[in-house]
């Protein structure tokens, strides 16, 4: 049985400057073909993490890759699954019902248009507009996939100019904290003895 916890990206609100580079980087590396310059982009920026900017806090919020992921549990077409230690959406299966969006307590999922080769993918289905019918663009659920197909890991972490993002591995983090609390205890015992 695999008992390892999923890793996830988390931001340090004390370091984040709110520049949105993480959002741009996320959108860039998930586009096909991957653009290098702004002019080569024909789609809007479609990030999978979202900057929160209020007086109290500035930081991006992204998927925690929950161990019992509510988004995957509620998906009526099983488009959300656990894959490579991450919770991922199969865009081909998703029908845009938004139930995962409602289920996620972090707001880590949104529905976005799909772009292929600079063109928005349209649905075969049409939409009533006035008297006639109009084509509607395809919208699918989009969420962090930990950049699993990228050798260098999550693009948001790599590109953050404030080094505010990190890949959190809770097993390591737990050991780190165990160690630090043991050292703290040792220190206080020493002080008490003196």
């Amino acid at each position: 049985m695999n008992t390892s916890l999923n890793t996830f990206v988390v931001a340090d609100p004390k370091k984040c400057i709110g520049c949105k580079v993480c959002e741009v980087a996320c959108s860039t590396v998930h586009a096909t073909p991957e653009p290098r310059t702004v002019g080569a982009m024909a789609s809007p920026v479609l990030p999978r993490l979202y900057l929160v900017r209020v007086p109290e806090v500035t930081m991006p919020v992204q998927c925690r890759h929950c161990e019992d992921a509510p988004c995957a549990n509620v998906c009526p077409v099983a488009a959300i699954t656990q894959k490579n230690d991450a919770i991922v959406v199969d865009e081909a299966v998703c029908m845009g019902c938004k139930t995962c969006m409602m289920a996620c307590p972090f707001g880590a999922i949104d529905l976005v248009p799909v772009y292929k080769n600079g063109q928005a993918v349209m649905q075969n289905l049409q939409e009533a507009q006035g008297q006639g019918l109009a084509v509607k663009e395809k919208l699918v659920a989009s969420k962090c996939d930990m950049c699993f197909s990228r050798d260098k890991g999550p693009a948001c972490v790599e590109n953050c100019p404030a080094k505010a993002l990190e890949v959190m591995s809770l097993k390591k983090e737990k050991r780190k904290r165990n160690l630090s609390s043991a050292m703290n205890l040792l220190e206080s015992v020493k002080q008490f003895m003196e």
């Binding site: 609100p13 919020v61 409602m102 307590p105």
Partner: peptide
């Protein structure tokens, strides 16, 4: 519910929760 707006509210709650774990959990 407008899902987009709902998403933003939850983003905010999640950020506040991380900022101040004591109070943020209730806020979330």
């Amino acid at each position: 519910v407008e899902p987009g707006r709902d998403r933003k509210e939850k983003n905010l709650a999640a950020a506040l929760a991380l900022l101040a774990p004591g109070t943020g959990r209730q806020a979330a």
